[in-house]
Design a protein around this nucleic acid. Structure first.
Lengths: 208, 208
DNA sequence: ATCCGTTCCTAACGTTGTTAGATTTCCTAA
DNA sequence: TTAGGAAATCTAACAACGTTAGGAACGGAT
């Protein structure tokens, strides 16, 4: 039955086209323009067709979020090729903020509290894994033992997000935000290298 | 003309009641439940009445955002009474994240990209002023000269926001987020105190 | 008692996400 | 070759949203 496989292929194809159309609308016109009818029109279908490929709008948006994280992951991998350990860290910081600046609307939905927290964490995992890896080699290279590695990682992740958001929310310009991220990361790493005062080993309780 | 002043008083009063009702709905049921009709029902009016007090929904939401920042400001002032310079900084960090944890939905709209960036920055100004003040006395107390004071301030602000968001987005628990914020701030300050390596004085260009 | 401005409500418009039902298309099987 | 049935697609509609228009009711001043 080669016909059914062709049908499945076509199905998968239009599904992909829907995602691409949605992504295009999101990136070029922002989240307000991202409506089911608009997307359907762009792929030359009627609105209900979208629901044959996605349970609801959230599912479609989640696909965009996943796409965004894959994109970010690839850029991280490129930045991670920098040989120098310290420069590699600052390049990651810079890349993160650059991504937020170049894909503001995508970045927005990637961190939108409205999309399910668990799913968001799930699709973001690979990219924070890269960060984790980099921090591991960095701390090894500098003979630094972090009191709580996961905590350190979350601090970096949160800091990058916060400063990227500074740019995204319009508080500072994008280039400046990138520079801020590099400085912040440098300051934190320097702080860790210098060694935190004793009162360090915090409670590992209440984490999720 | 005592009658007209009474009318104005009543007007201002219902306006305030609308804001309070909106705030209550937001805090207890989240942003999705914050509809004009719902608010109107809660104050025992019909929906269009709301538009006699606010040009549109955004204007009303902006009022909530402003309220949120006033609230945060008051808690900051309380935390700023701590005499010890260093502890004062970590208490601010802790307070910021605590606020985000205790008013998650309010915190959400306070940093929602959908509300106008300029207005958001405007209402946030007083609270970042507190941070600026604290950083000033801190750097003076430790004989630290920051290469770029505004930049340092933005780094702190962004970092706090980022780590608070970590809790808000559900990546980590609230208590843990608070602890993370304290650690992050300690690390950054320690980094600054130790002194950043020469390549510091960044371009002050492209700031907004 | 009458007028006028303010206040308020009902009804409606356009748009959103989403579902139901009918219709068309197209492969399969007799 | 043709009858049947699943898959695909459309039109129409629903509920809820923000928002506006138009008229009814109230209340103080002449």
């Amino acid at each position: 039955m080669p016909t059914s496989t062709r049908r499945a292929r076509e199905r998968a194809n239009t599904r992909e086209r829907i995602i691409e159309a949605a992504l295009h609308v999101l990136e070029t016109e922002g989240v307000a323009a991202l409506t089911i009818r608009r997307i359907a029109t762009d792929v030359e279908y009627s609105a209900p067709v979208v629901y044959q490929h996605f349970a609801n709008k959230d599912a479609l948006v989640l696909e965009l979020v996943a796409h965004g994280h894959r994109l970010m992951l690839s850029e991280f991998h490129r930045a991670a090729q920098e040989p120098d350990t310290d420069r590699r860290m600052t390049r990651i910081a810079s890349q993160y903020v650059r991504f937020a600046g170049e894909h503001p609307h995508l970045f927005q939905v990637m961190n939108d509290p409205l999309v399910d927290a668990d799913e968001r964490r799930r699709v973001a995992e690979p990219v924070v894994d890269v960060l984790r890896e980099l921090l591991t080699t960095w701390s090894a290279a500098h003979d630094v033992v972090l009191a709580d590695f996961d905590q350190a990682c979350e601090i970096l992740w949160g800091t990058l997000y916060g400063i990227a958001s500074l740019g995204h929310l319009g508080n500072v310009g994008d280039d400046r935000a990138r520079h801020l991220a590099e400085q912040a990361l440098r300051a934190i790493l320097l702080g860790w290298r210098t060694g935190m005062p004793a009162s360090n080993r915090g409670p590992s309780s209440s984490g999720s």
